[in-house]
């Protein structure tokens, strides 16, 4: 009989502890705005048409619009080649060689690398770089004295992300 008495006591004790510990979570607020941790601007799933790509590229690099004649000629050249990424690289390189590309000097780039990288991401990808991306470019450019704004611009203009919006 004593055993049964102890058993009841244990059950009642457990029930009390359980009830006492079942408290609803309190959602703490700290007067900080909610921030999406996933950068939606990184999701670009629509491919630019050849026409869009060329007119945006030209404007990005020259800070002025491409003429319609030049746009059509360039579009036809892109169509005439199977590997679009490859031919786009050649076109970018052709622009770089014509001397009319508007970009910071090497000194300006190295004076404020953080700003240069952020501006470059905004210019080409229309978004702010993540901290990882910024860290990569700061480290890479600092470690490689041969890197010029032209090389950085060439990499951005020929990157996959620049083909999408």
């Amino acid at each position: 009989m004593r055993i049964f008495k102890n058993k009841y006591l244990i059950i009642i004790g457990v029930a009390i502890i359980s009830l006492a510990s079942c408290k609803k979570d309190v959602i703490a607020t700290y007067d900080v705005n909610d921030v999406d941790i996933e950068d939606k601007s990184l999701i670009k799933d629509r491919s630019k048409s050849n026409k869009q790509f060329i007119s945006i590229l030209y404007t990005t690099l020259h800070q002025k619009a491409i003429s319609s004649n030049q746009l059509i000629r360039t579009e036809r050249v892109i169509e005439s080649f199977g590997d679009k990424a490859l031919i786009n690289e050649v076109i970018v390189s052709n622009y770089m060689n014509n001397g009319n590309v508007v970009m910071p000097t090497n000194d300006e780039m190295r004076t404020d690398l953080d700003s240069f990288i952020t501006d470059t991401y905004k210019l080409f990808f229309v978004r702010i770089p993540t901290e990882i991306e910024k860290a990569f470019f700061v480290n890479y450019i600092e470690a490689n004295p041969n890197i010029t704004p032209e090389l950085v611009y060439t990499a951005f203009a020929s990157a996959d992300e620049y083909q999408f919006y």
Binding site: L42, L86, Y140, N146, L151, A159, D160, F164
Partner: peptide, 25 residues
């Protein structure tokens, strides 16, 4: 350096958007 920077950019893009389709050499 162009190729390395582009590779980094493409890898970042690939993580979110998958492999880009097209004839690739």
């Amino acid at each position: 350096p162009i190729q390395k920077m582009r590779e980094f950019l493409n890898n970042s893009f690939r993580i979110k958007n998958g492999e880009v389709q097209g004839i690739r050499n």
